[in-house]
């Protein structure tokens, strides 16, 4: 089992994507197939952008326990007021600044869910936690 932590600061648009880039390289080294690497990269990137746009800051934890890779994205608030709405494609509370970056289309959580094998989201005003799982395909299961 290997665990890595990456901190993500709120509103740090300049560095957006750096953590996802590092995690993508790491996952390649773990020997995941290219499609799964892309799915992990997309989910991580959307989650990283969400941390930057919507949270007070947070942390991405990568836990590789073969054949599963778990991503835990945890922030320190302010929480998602309505989880049902947040999961609805097209619903967004993103700022103009986030929209100018090409985000805030209300597709982030949907994209994350579509790309992950397991998806668990909890939220209250003290913070939001997103737990994702990705299974490494062996040659037999691919």
């Amino acid at each position: 089992m290997t665990i890595h932590h990456f901190d993500v600061a709120a509103l740090d648009y300049e560095k957006a994507g750096q953590v996802s880039s590092q995690i993508k390289k790491m996952v390649k080294e773990y020997g995941f197939d290219p499609i799964t690497v892309r799915r992990i990269a997309v989910a991580t990137y959307e989650a990283e952008i969400n941390l930057i746009i919507h949270s007070h800051g947070g942390r991405v934890t990568v836990n590789y326990e073969a054949p599963w890779l778990y991503l835990i994205i945890k922030d320190i608030g302010p929480g998602i007021p309505d989880l049902e709405k947040a999961m609805r494609p097209g619903w967004s509370t993103a700022s103009k600044e986030a929209q100018a970056m090409g985000f805030g289309a209300g597709l982030g959580l949907t994209n994350i869910q579509k790309n992950s094998d397991t998806f668990h989201l909890t939220s209250d005003p003290s913070g939001t936690t997103l737990e994702l799982g990705f299974k490494k395909h062996t040659e037999e299961s691919a």
């Binding site: 300049e14 957006a16 994507g17 996802s20 892309r38 997309v42 991580t44 990137y45 970056m101 090409g102």
Partner: peptide
């Protein structure tokens, strides 16, 4: 992905990062 082009009017780091994630 190696036969796919991304066309965009968003000339910023995020278009590059997005392409990177998608290979």
């Amino acid at each position: 992905c190696n036969r796919t082009i991304l066309l965009t009017g968003l000339a910023n780091a995020q278009s590059l990062r997005t392409a990177e994630m998608l290979d």
